[in-house]
């Protein structure tokens, strides 16, 4: 059986998502953002939501998300995506709104918007990529940076006395009555990727069914910020990040 016999349309079992633009993505090699974009593109297409979905992109590494997934997008100011999504979701109740937020967007400048949108139970999907660092601006500390973790603004490692404690924002979201589904996933192994896709699908289903706010945190890697190879970054994430940000559902009503 020659390879060329195997490679033919009827044997194809995995294809690049149709909603993912065939352009070079600016993310660093091995960055989790790319995997998450792929899953979002797959879920939207598989649920037939292409014509109803509006994404709200953040300021952060995913600031160019609107170039990659072929749905309507609105670019929010840093941290304001949940407010932007709240309005569009209420003004266009038949559309499905998701925000795509980094850790700075969600748990630093956008804390109030994130918590209040969730507390109002807006029927939106909040995708929260937590890589514990500010990648786009060059690797500075994020609220989720771990104690002892070196970043451009904690060059000797984060200290509680100077920089406070890592913020488990997703735990806060879970106690808000407005959230119906709050989960923490990752995309570092095929199994984890599948689980993240299932989580995203559930979140979008909740939005369609207007069950309230769904928060899907993806614990992610930042190879350039962490100064590790993609493979090593995954190992570091498993060893350190999962300790502070354990995977699994925090709420699923």
């Amino acid at each position: 059986m020659e390879i060329n016999d195997i490679i033919c349309p009827e044997n194809k079992v995995y294809a690049a998502p149709e909603l993912l633009e065939q352009v070079h993505m600016h993310y660093c090699p091995g960055c989790s953002h790319g995997v998450i974009h792929k899953l979002v593109a797959e879920v939207i297409a598989e649920m037939g939501l292409t014509e109803k979905t509006i994404g709200v992109s953040p300021v952060g590494c995913a600031v160019f998300a609107y170039n990659y997934i072929d749905v309507d997008w609105v670019e929010a100011a840093h941290g304001r995506a949940p407010a932007v999504a709240t309005a569009i979701s209420r003004l266009w109740p038949e559309n499905v709104l998701f925000t795509y937020q980094g850790d700075g967007d969600m748990s630093a400048i956008g804390t109030a918007e994130s918590i209040h949108a969730a507390n109002r139970g807006e029927n939106i999907v909040m995708i929260f990529v937590n890589n514990a660092i500010y990648g786009m601006t060059g690797g500075q500390m994020a609220p989720t940076t771990l104690v002892g973790q070196k970043t451009a603004t904690t060059p000797y490692g984060r200290r509680i006395d100077l920089n406070g404690h890592p913020l488990e924002i997703t735990n806060l979201m879970a106690i808000l009555d407005g959230t119906c589904y709050v989960t923490r996933q990752a995309v570092h192994t095929p199994a984890a990727v599948r689980k993240t896709k299932a989580a995203l699908k559930k979140a979008f289903e909740n939005a369609v069914a207007k069950k309230g706010t769904s928060v899907v945190e993806v614990v992610a890697t930042c190879n350039s910020g962490w100064k590790l190879s993609p493979e090593k970054a995954n190992e570091w994430m498993v060893e350190h990040m999962f300790e502070k940000y354990p995977l699994g559902d925090l709420k699923n009503e």
């Binding site: 195997i6 995995y14 993505m25 995997v35």
Partner: peptide, 24 residues
């Protein structure tokens, strides 16, 4: 190439959707 079983693990984790998988 002869070791490939078409399990898609590579495609799942690829951050840039570069990989398409065939299985027979």
């Amino acid at each position: 190439p002869d070791k490939c079983t078409g399990c898609c693990s590579c495609a799942w984790v690829c951050p840039d959707a570069c990989i398409e998988v065939y299985r027979v």
